[in-house]
Amino acid sequence: MRGTELSELSTFLAVARHRSFRKAATERGVAASAVSHTIRSLEERIGVRLIQRTTRSVTLTDAGERYLADLTPAFEQLARAQDGLNAFRATPFGTVRINVPTSIAPFAFRDVLGQLIEGNPGLKLDIVATDRLIDIVEEGFNAGIRFGEVLSRDMVAVRIRPVQRLIVVGSPSYFRSRLPPQHPRDLRQHIGIRYRYPSGAMFDWRFEQDGEVIVVQVEGPITLDDQDLMIEAALQGCGLAYVWEDRARPHLEAGTLHRCLQDWCQIKDDLFLYYPSRRHVSGALRVLIDRLKV
Rank of each mutant, 00 (worst) to 15 (best):
E5V: 15
E5Y: 14
E5G: 09
L6I: 13
S7C: 06
S7K: 13
S7M: 07
S7Q: 13
S7R: 14
E8S: 14
E8C: 14
S10K: 08
S10E: 09
T11Q: 11
T11M: 12
T11W: 12
T11R: 13
F12C: 01
F12V: 00
F12H: 03
L13K: 13
L13A: 11
A14H: 02
V15Y: 02
V15E: 01
V15P: 00
V15H: 04
V15T: 02
A16K: 12
A16G: 08
A16F: 14
A16L: 10
A16Q: 11
R17H: 09
R17W: 13
R17M: 14
R17K: 14
H18A: 12
H18E: 13
H18L: 10
R19H: 15
R19S: 14
R19C: 14
S20L: 09
F21E: 02
F21G: 00
F21M: 08
F21S: 03
R22Y: 04
K23W: 15
K23E: 14
K23F: 14
K23V: 10
K23G: 06
A24T: 09
A24W: 13
A24E: 06
A25G: 06
A25C: 09
A25D: 08
E27A: 12
R28K: 10
R28I: 03
G29I: 01
V30F: 07
V30K: 08
V30T: 03
A31M: 13
A32S: 12
S33D: 01
S33W: 05
A34D: 07
A34T: 15
V35N: 10
V35T: 12
S36R: 15
H37S: 13
H37M: 14
T38L: 02
R40V: 07
S41N: 06
L42R: 11
L42N: 08
E43W: 02
E43Q: 11
E43C: 08
E44H: 13
E44N: 13
E44P: 06
E44S: 12
E44D: 08
R45T: 02
R45E: 00
I46E: 00
G47H: 07
V48A: 04
R49I: 00
R49N: 04
L50H: 06
I51R: 07
I51C: 10
Q52G: 11
Q52M: 05
Q52V: 03
Q52W: 02
R53E: 03
R53L: 01
T54H: 10
T54F: 06
R56S: 04
S57A: 12
S57Y: 02
S57L: 06
V58H: 05
V58R: 05
T59E: 06
L60Q: 05
L60A: 07
L60V: 04
L60H: 09
L60K: 11
T61L: 03
T61G: 10
D62Y: 14
D62A: 10
D62E: 12
D62N: 11
A63E: 05
A63S: 09
A63L: 00
G64F: 04
G64Y: 00
E65D: 04
R66D: 00
R66F: 02
Y67T: 12
L68G: 00
D70K: 12
D70Y: 11
D70S: 07
L71H: 04
L71N: 01
L71R: 03
T72Y: 11
P73F: 08
P73K: 04
P73Q: 01
P73Y: 06
